[in-house]
Design a protein around this nucleic acid. Sequence first.
RNA 1: GGACUUGUAGCUCAAUGGCUAGAGCGCUUCAUUCACAUUGAAGAGGUUAGAGGUUCGAGUCCUCUCAAGUCCACCA
Length: 742
Amino acid sequence: MGTIMDSKYQPQLVEEKIYKEWDEKGLLRPSSDEKPFTILMPPPNANASLHAGHGMYMIEDILIRYKRLMGFASLWIPGTDHAGFETQFVYEKYLAKQDKSRFDFSRQALYENIYQFVRGNSGLIYNQFKKLGFLADWKRSVFTLDKHVLETVLDTFIKMEKEGYIYKDEYIVNYCTHCGTSLSELETVHVERKDPLYYLKYGPFVLATVRPETKFGDTAIAVHPKDKRYEKWVGKEVEVEGLLGKFNIKVIADEMVDMKFGTGVVKITPAHDPADFEAGKRHGLEVKRVINIDGRLNELTGPYAGLKVKIAREKIVTDLKNKGLIEKVDNEYLHAVTVCYKCGRDLEPTIIPNWFIKVKELKKPVIEAIKKDKIKFYPKRYKKQILQWLKVMHDWPISRQIAWGIRIPVWYLVNGNESRIWLSFIDREGKFKIGTIQQYLDKGHNLDEIKKGLQQITVPIYEQVQVKYLVSVNEPKDRQNWIQETDTFDTWFSSGQWPLVTLKEEEYKTRFPTDVMGTLSDILPFWVSRMIMFSLYRKNEIPFKNVYLWSKVVDSKGQKMSKSKGNVINPIDLVNKYGADAFRASLIFGTGENNVPLAEEKVIGMRNFVNKIWNIGRFIEMNNKVKSQKSKVKSSSEKLKVLKELEKEYKKEKKQYLKYMDSYQFFKALGLVYEFIWHRFADYYIEQLKDEVINGNIEALGKLKEVYLENLKMLHPFTPFVTEMIWKVFKGKKKSILEVRI
RNA sequence: GGACUUGUAGCUCAAUGGCUAGAGCGCUUCAUUCACAUUGAAGAGGUUAGAGGUUCGAGUCCUCUCAAGUCCACCA
C-alpha cells in the first residue's frame, strides 16, 4: 500500500484523474449481466453552459451510483435539446449585436447559421457535468435534431394526422410581435400593471377599455343578459359615431360580461382578444382583423394604418378627445397584462393559422395511468398537480413561426393557389420581399428563387376554397408545384418524444419503461405529461415508473437567481474552489422538498465534512500500517462493550439509510450518514477506542475499519471522489469502489 | 378570481400525533505536540405566524385570520 495521505484532502489534485479512470475502466456504463436500471437525462439546451439549476441533475447521478452499488446495471443516457425558441432567441440577440436580424436571411441560411452556432457551444456542458462527476454514458448522447430523432418525430406527426388527431385552424394566439412567434399559454407571463382605462362614448353607451386602438375591429357590443339597464338594446343594432365616421353595430347579451366592471358594457373585438374570440364563436360574429402580425395597424384603420400599436393608441386617444368621445380616464386601473416570457413585451392576441393536436382522447390513458399509480411521483403532492393540469389541458398548438426546429412535413399545392399563399423571402439580389406568390411571379421572380430564399409562408384558412395540402416528409413527386410549410414543431413536440428516441431498439425489451425521470418541477406540465402521452400513444406503454421532481436552486436568502439581481452563482467556481463532492453535498444537505438554497458557506461546511471523512481514513490507515510492529492487545470487557455498541448502531444506520434511499429521501440519507460518521463514529467511537488502537488492538482497529468502509460506500453516491480516493488507498490503486456492492 | 405550497433559533432547513422541538452556518467561552484548527468540548439563542377546536397528549390533525411564494386564469 504505502499511499501517503496528506493531512488535508485536496480535491483539485485528484478529481480529474479519478474521473478519467472511471472512463477508462468502462464504469460510465454498466456491466451487462446485472438487473437493468435506466435513467434518461433531461436534455439541456445544446448551446447552454452549466448553471446552478443543472447541479440538481446530481440527483440522478446519486441514483445511478446507488443502484450500481446495489447490484444494478445502471445506465444514464445523456442528450441535448435544440430548444427551438430559446436558442433562436439567443442567436438573434447575437445577430442584433452585428446590426442584423433574422429578416436578413432565408430560413435555410438562418437554420444553418444557428446549427453552426450551437455546434460551437456544444460539448461545453458535458465537460462541466464530468467535473461534477456524472456517471453517464456520454458516447450515447442523443441530440434532438439527430437523423433518427427526426424520423421518429415526423413519423408520429404523420400517424397522428392519419388518425385525425391533427388539425389546422385559425386560432387566436398570444403573439409576440417582437419575437415574431406565437406563444403557448405556458410561455407567457402575467404581470400586474397600471394602465389608463378609457371611458368611450359609444353610441347610446359608454364603455371602458384599455385598448381603444382595437375599436376598428369591433363587431359587436356586449352586455350581461341580466343587466336591466341595457335590456332594451339587446339584439338590436345601434348607430355609433367613431373616428372613421358613423357605423352600425349589433348588441349582444353574454354572461362573460361583468356587470360591475366599468359601465357593464364591453366592445367585442374577436380578432384581438382571446375572450372576445370565444364570444365571437358563440355568437357567430365576424372576425375583423385590424392589427397585422408585425404589430402595426392595417388599412382598415384609415389614417392610422402603418402605425405601431402604442403610437396608434396615443394618437387615437388624442383624436377621440378632440372629437369629445372620451368621457373620462381612470389612470389608476390595475390589471393583469400578458407579456412575453422572453422579451417582456406586451403580447398581441392575434389570429394565425396554426397546427393543433386534439388532446381529449390522447390524455385519457395518461390520466388513467397516473390515477392507477403506474407512474409514481416524488414528492407525492405532484400527482395531484399533474392530474389537475391534465384535466384542464386543451388542444395543443404545435406549430411555431421560427426556423430553428423540425419543419412540419406539410406541402401546400401552389398551382391555382398562387394568390392564396402569402410569404416572405429574400430574392436573388438579397432583398427582403413580402406578399403573395402571385405578386412575385408577376414581377418576374420564379418559384425556385422564392423557395431558395424563403423565410416564412402563411396559408390562411379561406371561407370557400381551401389550399390543398399533403402530409409528406419529401416533396410530392408529380407534375404540380408544392411548397413546404415553414412552421416548425414546438420544442416540446420533439422533446416530448425523448423516451422514444434514446434507447436502442433491443433495449425497449429490457429497459423500457425506464426507471426514473428526474426533472425540475416547473416543467411537469410541459414535458412530463407530454412524454407520458406520446409514449402511451406510440408504444402503448408508460415511459418511466417514477418521477422525481426537484425544485429551483435559489440563493442563500431564497431568492431566485437572476442576472439583474446579481445573485447568480456559478457552480464551476465553487467546484474549483472546494471540490465537486462539497458542491454536490451542499445541494442535498439540509434541504427539504422545497427550493434548494445554495450558498458558499454551506459548500464550505460540506468541504469540512469531506475533509473529516478523509482524516478518519487517514487515522485508520496510519494505524493499519504500523499494526504489525506492535504487540497484540486484547480488548478489555469495557472496550468490547463499545465495539458491540458500534456494531449495533451501524446496523441500525444502514437499515435506515436503505429505507431513505429507496424512498428518494436523499437529504435524510445524507444527513443520517453525516451525523453517524462525524458525531458518533469519529467523536465518540474513535475517541473511546483511540488508545487501544494506537497500542495495537487489532480487533478494535478491524471493527473500525470495517464500519468505516461500509460508510464510504453509503457516502459514495453523494461524495463520489473522496470515497473513491480513500478506497484506492485501502484497497489498491487499481480498485474502484464502483466495483463493489453495498 | 382559482389551485397548490410554505410560515419552527440571527440565516438555511429537519422533526411516522408521544421522552427535554434538533442540525448546518453564524455567535460566546475554553482546549491544543494528538487523524483532522477545514479540530474538539461546553454554552447562549424558541410563546413552532396568530386565534380557536379535536385528543390522555398537537410543531404535526381540523377551522378561521395574517403573511410569503409558485402555477393556472371564460376552462378548476
